[in-house]
Design a protein around this nucleic acid. Structure first.
Lengths: 257, 257
DNA sequence: CGGGACCTTGATTATCTTCAATGCTAGTGG
DNA sequence: CCACTAGCATTGAAGATAATCAAGGTCCCG
């Protein structure tokens, strides 16, 4: 980790500004607050892993690059619990019973956002737009966890991958890093497999299938979506503002066991 | 839903008291607060489903029975995101892009705990033991979500099941419903399958395997653990206070795609 | 006694993993 | 400039794991 001089904090903080603005309009004053509330910028080198303890209670946000929140099983398996993209929070301390940590994907920079968050969460809401944007961002993060569980539990490999790509597209749009029909994606298939709960080999085959089905194209480190509507359908319709569910089955049994 | 008279709130609130006490010792005064801070008791009938909207911003806790937080996919698949056991919070509002709701497993009772939670979260901490217990309970809930993701993503069906059973055992012990080597379990295999992300048929076979391996015995609606230590090992060692991880692999690539 | 809800079983198929090899590309040092 | 290596991607074959389909079987309850 290298502590960096507060050179052009303005450009460093742009993803945060963009991400928050995507959830709720910020006033010029609030944008100013965002830019001034980030301190203690660090670079995370590839292969390093930030343990919760090292954060020292501070709440850090990603400024550039991606960070992966990884859970390790002693036998070497691992699962990425969530990703933190630019403008998002490194969310989660130590977890009982599992070894977890934040690993940069490639190189990443983070900054201490404790002050920003404290301002956003103040009960008297001195910056209402900021508070609102922050609250919505938090809720979006919680929603992502639900989607992650649903993906891993009930979607096929093909659906999972489509669903993840759509989620990443949305998130990168919010921080101003993707356009309407494509996004940067600098993940190895192995990392993808650790997100999706699949083997790397299988991820490879699924990606081929997505290309064969002409849903996506890879070009210069980017994913181009050929047909977002079909992509959404391929994602198991999970990401639509969809039709009503059918309680149908029981889910309210007596259990004979 | 039936609103019930505040008959013997004392016994209704016992699981909450027990659960919180398991996280941090409560004074007699704090226990009194717990008992008086629950209002608006409801019974949830089998087959009903509580939509987030209906909660009206109130935060409800389970008093008896279990509630399942269910996500529905339009095609009928469903995934249980989390369970709420007696003394635990119904945690989670509407989720963007998926239909979710709380369904009682069998019959369940919940109460409005908004007042209790407000007291526990007051910045001036009028009841420090309560605040501490509550904070730890929240953290435990967050940790469970991590474990859930890890289970679904990286554990085999056998490991998943073992891991879930151990978690449920721990949780029921905390609310005073399980003893050291056994716990009540009134879930159908279908519900289990919706938690574990498996088919009901497969759950059946896994349970047989666990019995054949003499890790568990079913008796009168209870699961008896024959050998907790081996059970923990069967759960992929995830639930132990375990050995250090090995960053080993990369997880910090360049991505060629 | 009939029905419903749940559990169990076998056979078959689909999905995904593992293993092992090969190819590709960018970077490195001679 | 050219091997040489390291890190990823790709492929095929084989096998494990889990889903699906279709019957029973059991228990409880009205």
């Amino acid at each position: 980790m290298l502590t960096m001089a507060s050179v052009d904090r303005r450009s460093l903080c742009r993803p945060i500004e963009s991400k928050l603005s995507s959830f709720h309009r910020l006033t010029a004053e609030e944008i100013e607050v965002v830019h001034n509330a980030i301190t203690d910028v660090h670079s995370h080198q590839r292969g390093s892993e930030l343990r919760a303890a090292e954060a020292g209670g501070r709440r850090r946000m990603v400024l550039s690059g991606w960070m992966a929140w990884v859970a390790h099983i002693p036998d070497g398996r691992r699962q990425i619990i969530s990703l933190a993209l630019p403008g998002e929070l490194l969310d989660g301390g130590p977890v009982e019973g599992v070894h977890v940590g934040y690993a940069p994907i490639g190189i990443a920079q983070t900054g201490d956002a404790s002050r920003l968050i404290a301002l956003a969460e103040r009960p008297d809401r001195p910056y209402p737009g900021l508070s609102e944007a922050w609250a919505r961002a938090r809720r979006a993060a919680a929603d992502r966890m639900i989607h992650h569980v649903l993906r891993l539990g009930r979607l096929s490999a093909y659906e999972r991958t489509a669903s993840l790509f759509l989620e990443l597209h949305d998130r990168q749009r919010r921080s101003g890093q993707a356009d309407e029909r494509s996004m940067p994606l600098r993940l190895t298939q192995e990392v993808l497999s650790d997100i999706l709960g699949l083997s790397a080999v299988h991820v490879n085959r699924i990606l081929q299938q997505l290309r064969r089905d002409e849903l996506i194209v890879f070009r210069a480190g980017r994913v181009v979506f050929s047909d977002l509507e079909r992509m959404r359908r391929a994602a198991g319709q999970v990401d639509r503002t969809l039709p009503p569910p059918q309680p149908q089955g029981a889910l309210c049994p007596t259990a004979q066991t």
